[in-house]
Design a protein around this nucleic acid. Structure first.
Lengths: 338, 338
DNA sequence: TTGTACGCGTTATCAC
DNA sequence: GTGATAACGCGTACAA
C-alpha cells in the first residue's frame, strides 16, 4: 500500500512552500506567475497528488456532504428521488450520505444525530410518518430548531417555518376529483395516507373541495384512512367495495396496486366494474395489465429544486424556501365513463 | 449557531487532561478510578460533548464509511440490498456513501475515485455492465488492483481473485430448467442479461446443462441476448414468440414484466398460452395479475454476508472471500403443465 | 494514574 | 510573489 502523496511532497519536489501550492490549487490566484503555476500543476499531475478530503474538512469546517433521509426504500418515488438528488448534488461537488428510517421516529432521531456527528453541510429530510404525528410534532419541531445545520423538508412538511419542496397536493387532489366527475362518477371512495402527513391532508382537501363545488356528497365511510403501502390499498379496497362506489382514488400508486390485487382476487374488473386513480406514476403503473391513470409527480424537478434550495441555504443567498410544483394527471385506461 | 463543544472544554471544566478523557471515552480503561470515570462521563453528558468525526478520522486515518456502488436504482433488487446493507453496517458503526453508475463505466471510475478521495474504509461494488465488457475488463482489473482499499464485488464478479458475494447462479439456472421440464416443457425460450455479467453467464450455463441432461435441444435462436430491464423483456418476447415455444425463462423479474406486457398486448395469456419464469422475486412479482413464478435471491443474506466479509477485510481477519448463496424457486402460477 | 507534546494534511493569516 | 506559523480537534506514545 503506497503512501499518500501530501502537499509537502509536492512542496519538496519543487522547492516551493505549501502555501503557494495550496493557493494555486484552490484557484486563489492572487498574483502567481503563470510559469510557477504551470510548474505546480505539472508536478501535481506527475506525483498524482490530490488533497485529502478529511484534512480539508477539518481545516475548512465543511464536509461537502449532504445528509439525505427517506422513510421507505421500497417506494420507487423515493428511490428515483435519491438518484436524481445524488446526480444533481455531485455536479455541485457534494456527495450524499443516505439513511432510511422505515417510517420510525426513533430512526429519524438516530440518523439526524449521525448526520450531525458527521458534520454534513446540509440535511434533506423526508421525515417518518411517526415523527409527524400530532403527539410527536412538538418534539420533532424542537429537534429541527435545535439543528445548527441548514435543512429542508421533502415531500412532507410541518409548517411554513421550515424550507420545503414538494408538489401542490391540494390542486392535484382537486384535479383528480374533477376528472372523475367529468367521467360521470359520483360515488367515489378514497384511500388516504396517514392523515398527519401534509401530502394526505392536502390531497384530501383538494378532493373534497372539488366535490363540494359539484354538490357531490362524500360520506365519511367512503374515506379509508390508511398507510402509504400496498397492503393498505388491498384492505381499503376490501372495505370500500362493500359500499356501492364506482371509483376509487388511491393516494399513492402502491395503494392502487393493492386495490388492483384485491379486485383481481374478487373477480372485479378494472375499469369495467371499478374505476381507479393512483398517485406518483411509478414505473410499474404503465405496464400493469390495467394501465393506471395516475398523478405524476415531477421527481426530477423536485430533486433539482431541492438541491438548488440547499445550495442557496448553504451559501446564504436569498430565494424562496417554499416550493410547490405542479403535478400532471396521466390518463391511461383505469377509468371508465359512467 | 453555538460553538461546538470540544474535548478541551470538558478538560477545562474538570481540571483533567484531555488524554484521560479520551482514554475513558474510547474504553481504553487501563487504570482509571471509577470515580474519575463517572465524573468524566457526567460532564460529557452535561456539556453535550461528542467527538468530532472529522478530527477523529484525520487522527486515526479511518473514516468509518463504506462506499457502495450500484448500477441501477430502479431495480428493486439493488434498492433492497442498499437498505439491508445500510442497516447492517450501521450496527457496526459504519455509514454508507451511495453512488449509482447507471451501468456506465465512466461513472464507475468517477465514483470509485470519489470514494478514494473520501478515504472510505471499504468498497462494495456492483460494477456497471460496461466495465465488465471484455474490451474493458483489463482496465477494470487494473483499476481494482491499484486500489489500496479493501473491496468486494456484489452480484457480479470478474474472477476468483476478487472477494465476492452473490448467489449460485448456475444451480439456479439448472433448477429453473428442471422445473420447466418437470412441467412438460421442451421448447423453452430464454431472455438473458448482458453475457459479460457472471450472473447471466452462469444462469445460462446451468440452464443449458439441465437441458442437455434431459436431451432437450436449445436452438441458438431460442436465446435472446438482452439487457436486464423491462424493455428488453418486451423485445425478447416479441422475438421468441415468433418461434413455437411454450415457455420463457427471463433472467430477471424486470424482463419478465416486459414479457407480460408484450403478451398482454398480443392477447397471449399467461400461463394458458405461455409459461413464464423470472429471477429476483421483486415485490411486484407477487401482486401482478399473473403471479410470477420466479427465483428468489436472499437479499438480506447477501447483505449480511457481504457486510461481514467487509468487516473481516477491514480488520484483517481470515475467512472466506467467495460466497455463493442458495436461491429458492418460488412457485406461483405463471407456469402451466403441458 | 495523569499530563505533555506531537502528528494527522489541510487552509488561512500575516509577515517579508 | 512567497513563506513561516498557527489552527482545525482528536489520538497516542512517552514521560512524570
Amino acid at each position: 500500500m503506497r503512501k499518500k502523496v501530501t502537499i509537502k511532497d509536492v512542496s519538496k519536489e519543487l522547492g516551493l512552500s505549501p502555501t503557494t501550492i495550496s493557493l494555486v490549487l484552490n484557484g486563489k490566484d492572487c498574483s502567481i506567475p503563470e510559469a510557477t503555476k504551470k510548474r505546480i500543476l505539472d508536478c501535481v499531475e506527475k506525483l498524482n497528488y490530490y488533497p485529502d478530503t478529511i484534512a480539508q474538512s477539518l481545516a475548512t469546517q465543511k464536509t461537502k456532504t449532504i445528509g439525505l433521509l427517506i422513510p421507505d426504500i421500497t417506494n420507487n418515488f423515493f428511490t428515483e428521488y435519491v438518484h436524481s438528488v445524488q446526480l444533481k448534488l455531485s455536479s455541485y461537488g457534494y456527495d450524499v450520505l443516505l439513511c432510511i428510517s422505515e417510517d420510525k421516529m426513533e430512526d429519524d432521531l438516530k440518523y439526524i444525530n449521525l448526520f450531525k456527528n458527521r458534520r454534513v453541510d446540509g440535511l434533506m429530510l423526508a421525515m417518518s410518518a411517526e415523527s409527524l404525528q400530532p403527539e410527536n410534532l412538538e418534539n420533532t419541531k424542537k429537534l429541527l430548531n435545535s439543528l445548527d445545520i441548514p435543512y429542508i423538508m421533502i415531500d412532507r412538511y410541518i409548517d411554513s417555518s421550515s424550507p420545503y419542496v414538494g408538489v401542490d397536493n391540494e390542486t392535484s387532489g382537486f384535479n383528480v376529483a374533477k376528472h372523475l366527475i367529468n367521467k360521470g362518477h359520483k360515488k367515489i371512495g378514497v384511500i388516504t395516507g396517514p392523515m398527519y402527513l401534509s401530502s394526505s391532508i392536502n390531497r384530501l382537501k383538494g378532493f373534497k373541495k372539488c366535490l363540494k363545488e359539484h354538490n357531490i356528497d362524500l360520506p365519511e365511510d367512503y374515506i379509508q384512512y390508511m398507510k402509504y403501502d400496498m397492503k393498505s390499498g388491498y384492505l381499503g379496497a376490501k372495505e370500500l367495495l362493500k359500499k356501492d362506489i364506482t371509483a376509487i382514488f388511491a393516494f399513492n400508486d402502491l395503494q392502487a396496486y393493492g386495490v388492483i390485487s384485491y379486485a383481481k382476487e374478487q373477480g372485479i374488473k378494472i375499469p369495467e366494474d371499478l374505476s381507479l386513480v393512483g398517485f406518483d406514476d411509478l414505473l410499474y403503473s404503465s405496464i400493469l395489465d390495467t394501465k393506471l391513470t395516475t398523478v405524476k409527480q415531477p421527481i426530477e424537478s423536485i430533486a433539482t429544486e431541492s438541491c438548488e434550495m440547499m445550495m442557496r441555504l448553504i451559501n446564504d443567498v436569498d430565494g424562496t424556501t417554499m416550493i410547490r410544483l405542479k403535478t400532471e394527471l396521466i390518463i391511461r385506461n383505469s377509468i371508465k365513463e359512467v
